[in-house]
């Protein structure tokens, strides 16, 4: 598995032309997702499969459609210094790994610090089986709030950067460009069959995240990829009619707001910020309610931000075609 990853990365260096590189990036994402499964990180694999193999190559493709797929050849003289630098740094890092605890040993420092506490007591304190979710949403809720805000800010930054001139700061889709290719009839029919299941699966991942692998981040990305697939096959104007860009932009803010408000609610109830034990008479029930609330916030925010980013790039592509 790891050898395949290295092979893909080497191919990425060797290949010229951005389209081939992007396809290899997608392969790379899928491979690393399967690697994460073998490392017991099922939640991470979920996210990586949706992001690394789906959304990120797609955004790269949209960019390449805007800036052109040609890649200039680099001259050999310029390669010597980077090669030297990389070799030296790599050698130093490999010397550094010799001090690492050997792979998979249960008494490594990473395994003995806080992890046993999470594994032994989260069952009683939080009351949900998926430890990843309880750490993410309850023990380290501050971190996650920060991450959600970073994602939100990134969405805003993309909107600002890609806003067409004179449109008041929002990269809205332009009026429809005529479709110059034959309609993708077969693709459209099949996607009509599959997209509802993708969205349903996203909801399952969202609300089942406490018991199995899943949660807001994964669900948000899966939901967004469903919508983006629809947009790819039916054109940007159609998907903009289904989910108007202003609605998505507001939803991104609403998602982050739900998260923050949950924290403020627990503050008002007399506990610490984001301490959900205050949300119900029984602390464990309170934790349940809190986790469901913030996972919902995360899911909405992530899905909305990724759809917004897609709209911004695709809208840019449309305006350029006119």
């Amino acid at each position: 598995m790891l050898c395949l990853l290295v092979a893909t990365a080497i191919a990425l260096i060797a290949v010229r032309g951005l389209l081939a590189s992007i396809m290899l990036t997608s392969v790379y994402g899928l491979l690393s997702a399967s690697f994460f499964v073998t490392m017991d990180a099922v939640d991470v694999a979920f996210t990586e499969a949706a992001v690394g193999a789906g959304v990120s190559p797609l955004l790269l493709l949209l960019t390449v459609a805007i800036v052109g797929r040609r890649e200039a050849a680099s001259n050999a003289r310029r390669l010597v210094v980077p090669l030297l630098l990389v070799t030296v740094t790599g050698a130093l890092l490999i010397i550094g790994t010799l001090d690492m605890p050997s792979f998979g040993s249960p008494d490594a420092p990473a395994q003995t610090h806080v992890a046993p506490r999470y594994l032994q007591q989260s069952g009683d304190e939080i009351g949900i089986p998926n430890v990843v979710t309880s750490v993410l949403a309850s023990y380290r809720a501050y971190d996650t709030l920060g991450e959600v805000l970073v994602i939100f800010t990134a969405g805003v930054a993309v909107l600002l950067a890609l806003a067409p001139a004179g449109q008041g700061g929002s990269a809205r889709a332009e009026p429809p460009a005529p479709e110059h290719l034959a309609p993708h009839t077969i693709l459209q029919v099949v996607s009509k069959l599959l997209i509802p299941f993708m969205l349903l699966f996203a909801f399952y991942v969202q609300f089942h995240g406490e018991y199995g692998p899943g949660g807001g981040f994964q669900a948000g990305v899966i939901f967004a990829s469903g919508i983006i697939l629809y947009g790819l096959l039916y054109g940007l104007p159609t998907v903009c009619r289904v989910i108007p860009p202003p609605v998505v932009e507001v939803l991104a803010a609403v998602g982050a707001l739900i998260y923050g408000l949950t924290g403020v609610l627990s503050l008002l109830a007399g506990k610490n910020f984001l301490d959900y034990s205050a949300l119900a008479a029984d602390p464990v029930t309170g934790q349940h309610i809190g986790i469901i609330a913030i996972e919902l916030g995360v899911g909405i925010a992530v899905a909305a931000v990724i759809i917004t980013i897609y709209y911004a790039f695709a809208g840019r592509l449309h305006t350029r075609e006119d």
Partner: peptide, 20 residues
């Protein structure tokens, strides 16, 4: 079921894109 739907569709999409 999913593979039966998606795999032929993916081949079709590839072939169509290549033709275009």
């Amino acid at each position: 079921l999913f593979v039966l739907f998606s795999s032929p569709t993916a081949s079709h999409a590839l072939a169509k894109a290549a033709w275009n």
